[in-house]
């Protein structure tokens, strides 16, 4: 099985976001960048497919120069090959999707796995866009799946439950937390991964389909009435919810 896993590098979840000097993106100085948390499931799923069906796993990232670090993580976890495409456009999912599709077309994967979202621009768009560009079916937010022969049966999370979806290979899926239990790379593998080759490819120049005018930090407009825990306070809270906030 020819498996392509697409991963991204994002600011650590504990990052306190500040607006950069361009006024449109975040200030990157001092920010720790990590492997997108959902992509731990992505890489793990690729490795499990190889263990089950044989074949090879290629990890791909589209991003700025520092994004190569996450390919080292993927190599340490056990992927066979790493491909880096330089394109730092985060605002436009389409531009990332075009670059992924371009690499995919050259390797004809049976399965493309991605994370359900990158926790920077949170677009949830990549599985569908890549699927459309490759003319493949896609299933997003998959928490469980099974491949038998050419048939794929997957469960994806929806509001208040799960959808059971049936399709055929080749296909694209996006991984939800719980799909698997990602392995930790072992120290010797981390050391070995440092000297493994990373193939660099030039990105496809596609003009961005969106433009950002400005980035701002959310302003809290909360009333902030802080009460104690006496009976009177709790009654007051109930009154405020009824009469002031009018939410119950």
């Amino acid at each position: 099985m020819n498996i392509l896993v697409c991963i991204s590098q994002v600011p650590d979840t504990t990052t306190k976001v500040a607006v950069g000097t361009d006024g449109k993106t975040i200030e990157k100085t001092g920010v720790k960048f990590i492997l997108n948390p959902y992509d731990e499931f992505t890489i793990e799923e690729g490795l499990r497919l190889r263990e089950k069906f044989g074949g090879s796993v290629t990890a791909l990232t589209v991003g700025g120069d520092t994004a190569k670090e996450i390919l080292r993580t993927a190599l340490a976890m056990g992927v066979d090959k790493a491909v880096f495409v330089k394109d730092d456009n985060r605002e436009d999912s389409y531009s990332v999707a075009v670059n992924i599709a371009e690499v995919a077309k050259s390797m004809q994967p049976d399965v493309v796995v991605l994370g359900r979202q990158s926790i920077d621009y949170d677009s949830f768009a990549m599985a569908s866009m890549v699927g459309e560009l490759l003319d493949m079916p896609s299933i997003s937010v998959v928490s469980k799946w099974n491949i038998e022969g050419n048939t794929v049966i997957a469960e994806r999370d929806i509001e208040g439950g799960k959808e059971v979806v049936e399709t055929t290979l080749p296909c694209v899926i996006s991984a939800q937390k719980g799909l698997n239990d990602p392995r930790y790379p072992k120290l010797p593998d981390i050391m070995k991964a440092k000297s493994k080759p990373i193939e660099e490819r030039t990105g496809v120049a596609s003009s961005s389909r969106v433009q950002t005018f400005s980035m701002e930090l959310p302003q809290s407009k909360r009333v902030g009435k802080i009460l104690g825990d006496t009976d009177t306070d709790i009654s007051e809270l109930v009154r405020l919810l009824h009469e002031e906030a009018k939410v119950i």
Binding site: Y94, D122, S123, F124, A125, A127, E132, V141, R156
Partner: peptide
Amino acid sequence: AAGKEISPRVSVKLNAGFVPD
């Protein structure tokens, strides 16, 4: 859940810019 899955596909089909969420 459904809107998030189909809107990106529709945007590609229409050569349209996509603004989610």
